[in-house]
Structure formats: C-alpha cells, structure tokens
Design a protein around this nucleic acid. Structure first.
Length: 575
RNA sequence: UGGGGUGUCGCCAAGUGGUAAGGCACAAGGUUUUGAUCCUUGCAUUCGUUGGUUCGAAUCCAGCCACCCCAGCCA
C-alpha cells in the first residue's frame, strides 16, 4: 500500500474475520464477500470512521471481495456536497479504493418507493396521520406497550392513494407518514410500527427537488444493501436493536423483486439476503468524537475548523502530520470486538511515532534560540557538514548542514544551575553539537535583568567525527547556524482536553476541560536550510524535539509554519 | 422496572472443554554523537461474582452483580 518502512500491523483474529471465514467455508455467498462503508454526508470523517473504513475495506480485500462507498443521504436537511467531497477525499487519502462508482442511497429512491408500494399492497404498511407528538404518545414506553394508530386499518387502496399524493407534494411536512405495520406491543420499540417515509419539502443535494418524501434509515439501509448485493453489513452496536427491523423489511419484500433491481439481476446465482453484524465503535480518551460535538467545536470556534490539527477528524490529523499508514496500523491494532471500550490515546501516539521514526527525515530546528558564539571559529567561515537524514537507513541520503561562528541552541539545553543528572551545557562544561564538534562553555553573558543572552564557547577541533580524548562527553545538543538558518513559525500541539472523558455528564460544560496549552505558537524558531528545500517531504523529525510537518495551508512563501505532530518519547523530563 | 448487549492485566485484545497470545502503558538493565530508536528482562496460579456439570472450565449450565444501548417523522 505504501513503501512505509514501518511494518504494517499484522491482521489480528477478530470475530468478524472469523465470521467471514466461516461463511466462506460454508459457501454461503458462493465465495463472494461484499461490504460497504455507508457514511451520512453530514460532517467530516473522524478517527472513529477510520476504524469502520479499515474494517470494511480490509475484510473485502483480504477475501478478494469488494467494498462499496455509499452515502446514506436520506436526510437532506443535514447533508451537503461539501461533506460528500471531504469524505471521498479522506477515504482516498487513507489508501482505500471503493468498488465501482460512488453510490448514494438517493440513487435508489425510485426502487425504494416501489418497494414501499409493495409493502402497502401486502398490507404491511399504512399511511398514518398522527403528528410527531401523538406518535410518541402512542408508542408507549420502555415498560409499557404502545397503542395502534387510529389509521392502522386504513384500506389498502386508500393507503396507496395517500402515499402517491404524499409523493406529489399534496401534504405539508409532518402531516402524514408511511409506517410499517408490525407490532405496537413489541418489547423492541423499533418494531412498534416504525416510520418508513416522511414528508420533507427540502432540496436534496443529489436529487434536487424531485422528492417531497424521504425514506428513513431503517427502511433504506437494508434495501440498499440488498440492491448492492452486500453480503456483510457491518455497523456499530447501537444498531443492534434495529437488526430485527432490517430483517423484517427484507423478508417482507419479494426476493425475486429485490434481485431484479440488484447488481445480480442477470446472474443465475442464488439470491442471498445481506446480514447485519455489529461491532463496538472506537472511543478514544482525551477527545470527543460525537459528530454533534465536533460540529459545535467548529461552529463556536473552539478550534479553527474541521481540519484544525487538534481535531480527531482525518482532515485535522492529516494536517497535524499523521500518516495514512499510521492510522491504518492504529485501527488494526485496536482490534474489533463487541465490548464497549475506550482506547488510550497513548496507543495512537505510539503508532504515529512508530511510522515517523522509520520514515521521517531528521533535521535540526531550534525552537527557543540562545545565541552561541564559537570564539575559535572565524567570522567568515561557512563549513558544510554532511549529515545523514536517518540514523539507520543510509538510503534516506545525506544533506549539508552549514556550520558557522554563531549558532543557536535551545535555551532549555543550557542551565547555570543544572538539576541532578543534567546532560546538557553548563558553565565550564562540554557538550556535543550534534553531527559537529564538542564545545565548551567559557563565558555566560547576561543582560541587565539577569537573563542569559549569549554563551561564548570554544570548539575542540579534534572532535569532528571523533570522540574527544581522555574524557567522556555525554550530552548531545541540536543547533542551527545563526547566519544560514531560516526563521520559521512552529506550532506546538498537545491534547485538546485535560481529562480522559471530556464529554462526560459529570462536567456541566466540556469547555471547562479544554487544555489551555493545546496550541502554543513559537514565532522565532530557526531551522536548517535543507529542511525547506526538500519539497517532496512533509514529515520531519526535528532532532530531540519531535515530529513536525509543514502546514501547507497557513505557510506563505516568506514564512513557513510547521505543526508538531507528536513529541519524541521522553524518559528524562518526568524524572 | 420491558427489550437488546457486554464483562479476560492500568488500556486495547486473542482465546470457543485440555491447563491464560500479542500490543500499549509501566519498571529495571544494555547499546547509542537524538535523554529518540533498538535490544534484554519483568509485568493475570487467574478470566465480574457465586454455585453446578466434568478427570479437567475463561470456555458448558444456573443464579447474582456491574456497565452500555433503545421510547427522532436522526443515522
């Protein structure tokens, strides 16, 4: 899929893989496996969707099957082409290719309508005049059975007539609905004569103004699955209670009729109905994943947009520097099961570090510059030092790093009064400039307020590529030439929330859990010139700091902006 | 208190009657011109709980407990 050096996570055993293997062994679908990813285009895709995408596409790919992309667009009021486009883009970016053309539930509105007529003719559906509030009353409660609609016994002929007129737009929104005739006393509330069609005089992003009535999810999804010959309809746990309705709908229809409008229309194969299987959706701590939450954060400008690098959206994560491979690996490593679980953010962080450690070129960038003057280097000297782009992979090549009399190191790499175990520069002490010489700090220069403004150091000229004689220098520090380095802006991103479950009802407002330091912008960072010339690379490791990527949305020709994807693991600062 | 689910290490998760995989996290060592990477080692006599069946149970049975989902003309 990519030439990523990080090994792709090996497929793990899970109950869906087992189920599919069993179905294959039983020859249930003549050896065919066909899945689908069915997003509603009412928001951007997030890491939770990625789990479902990876599952559906992988299951298909592993079994020489197919996976469709089908937009479940039955509620036009909430949907838009912007979302359709972003979703297609994100799936492609993740590295998956859907089977054939993009599908839409709305593509099948005519068939869906005809099947509804069939249900009416079979006395399995009726037109109901109860309004929303009345319907709620009639539905009963969790512990009490519901009551039948007064219209439940409306003659078939009249239902047919009314339904046709609903389609023509004769009635206003909510005036009438088409309902399945199942069982108002069913303990499963989804079976208490659920609504199949509602009247909505709204413009649809795919069908325009053709329809005044729109089918509901439960009625639509199963039939679309059947039409597309989906064998395994995978969805999340909350749809478990809907499975009986899924099956009721398909079993209520004439299967020959279903086959006639399906992709198997001309095939002699036995027609097999799709089956729904549920799995637990992905939850991640320190984040909020609900579409409503994400939308609200965008609208109230808690973040800069759907693609804010702190968002768990694929667009946000991509901008943050996450690679598609790392997200795929993450989804594989969290597994697929039926128990509600919350995955630790640390796992996600591990998978991106794993990928970037193997694949990102190393570069030096000083975040908080402290000037060093190397007193025994002449002022006009510029030495190009050749440094490996990766400590382990020679094939990643080398680059030139200019070395001059004045360089910057990070302020945190010098301490006048070092804590125990400090391995960096101290007055009179030595440290190795990474890929360069060992230097000694001879003099500390401060301003009037006592702040250190410059260090005057001397280099040991025998230490370029050599260990110093007669002593050990433990510390290695990154640096950038003051005259050759380029000023850039660096955005330090951190978790958006400070608590594991920011959306928990134990907090009255999730905003109180926002991490005030989730974005820290550093304006005067200095990066080595080579980092800006490798145009084809977007992910870097800034040595000793972390992984960063160029923000190509906000960067300008004169000022480049880098986003921190994730820090390096740090076993020192915690001590 | 109706219906549907789930409970295996701090977090994911395999396991489907033969005596507890793996990953993350954590801890301790080693290597290292990134306090990174890498390597080594450690980390559940026990599978929500109580009983039962069995030569043998995380796996089968029964009860109990905890948690999640469902009363949109959302998906």
């Amino acid at each position: 899929m990519t030439d990523s050096k990080a090994a792709a996570a090996a497929p793990h055993s899970n109950f869906i893989r087992n189920l599919v293997a069993q179905d294959l062994a039983d020859n249930k679908h003549q050896g065919k496996i066909h899945t689908r990813f069915p997003p509603e285009p009412n928001g951007y895709l997030h890491i939770g969707h990625a789990k479902s995408i990876c599952l559906n596409f992988s299951i298909a790919a592993e079994n020489n099957g197919h996976c469709n992309l089908r937009f479940d667009d039955t509620n036009p009021a909430k949907e838009s082409v912007e979302f359709v486009e972003s979703i297609k883009n994100d799936i492609k970016w993740l590295g998956f290719e859907w089977s054939g053309e993009v599908r839409f539930s709305s593509l099948y509105f005519d068939q869906l309508y005809n099947f509804a007529v069939e249900l009416i003719e079979k006395d399995k559906a009726f037109v109901c005049s109860l309004n929303a509030e009345q319907m709620r009353e009639y539905r009963g409660s969790l512990t009490e059975p519901g009551r039948s609609s007064p219209d439940r016994d409306r003659p078939i002929k009249e239902n047919l007539d009314l339904f046709a007129r609903m389609r023509e737009g004769e009635f206003g929104d909510g005036e009438l609905s088409l309902r399945a005739k199942i069982d108002m006393a069913a303990p499963n509330i989804n079976l208490r004569d659920p609504v199949l069609y509602r009247i909505r005089h709204v413009h649809h992003h795919q069908t325009g103004d053709k329809w005044k009535i729109y089918p509901t999810y439960d009625y639509t999804h199963c039939i679309c699955d059947a039409i597309e010959n989906i064998t395994h309809s995978l969805c999340t746990l909350e749809f478990e209670d809907h499975r009986p309705l899924y099956n009721w709908t398909l079993n209520s229809l004439d299967s020959a009729g279903l086959k006639r409008v399906s992709d198997l229309a001309d095939s002699p194969d036995t027609y097999v109905l799709p089956e729904q299987t549920e799995f637990a959706k992905l939850k991640l701590n320190y984040t909020m994943m609900g579409k409503r939450n994400l939308k609200e954060m965008v609208e109230t400008e808690v973040v800069s947009g759907w693609n804010d690098p702190r968002m768990p959206t694929l667009a946000g994560m991509r901008r943050r520097g996450f690679t598609a491979a790392s997200i795929r690996n993450f989804c594989e490593s969290v597994g697929v099961a039926r128990s509600d679980s919350v995955v630790d953010m640390g796992m996600l962080e591990h998978t991106i570090r794993e990928d970037l450690d193997a694949n990102a070129s190393r570069v030096m960038c000083v975040l908080k510059p402290l000037k060093i003057t190397l007193t025994n280097i002449s002022a006009d000297e510029v030495v190009q030092l050749s440094m490996a782009n990766h400590p382990k992979y020679e094939e990643k090549g080398r680059r030139n790093v200019p070395f001059t009399r004045e360089v910057y190191i990070d302020r945190s790499d010098f301490e006048e009064v070092p804590p125990n175990g400090f391995k960096r520069l101290i007055p009179g002490g030595e440290v190795r400039l990474r890929g360069c010489y060992v230097i000694r700090c001879d003099e500390v220069i401060k301003d009037d307020s006592g702040e250190v403004t410059e260090l005057r150091c001397s280099v040991d000229k025998n230490t370029l590529g050599n260990k110093p004689e007669g002593r050990k220098v433990k510390g290695v520090v990154h640096w950038v030439s003051a005259s050759e380095g380029v000023e850039v802006t660096v955005r330090l991103y951190d978790r958006l929330f400070t608590v594991e479950n920011p959306g928990s009802k134990e907090y009255e407002d999730y905003r109180s859990n926002l991490n005030p330091n989730s974005l820290v912008t550093l304006e005067n960072c200095v990066i080595e010139p080579a980092a800006l010339s490798s145009a084809d690379e977007s992910n870097f490791q800034f040595e000793r700091e972390g992984y960063f990527c160029l923000d190509d949305i906000d960067s300008s020709a004169s000022k480049k902006i880098f986003n921190r994807t994730i820090t390096l693991r740090d076993s020192w600062s915690g001590k």
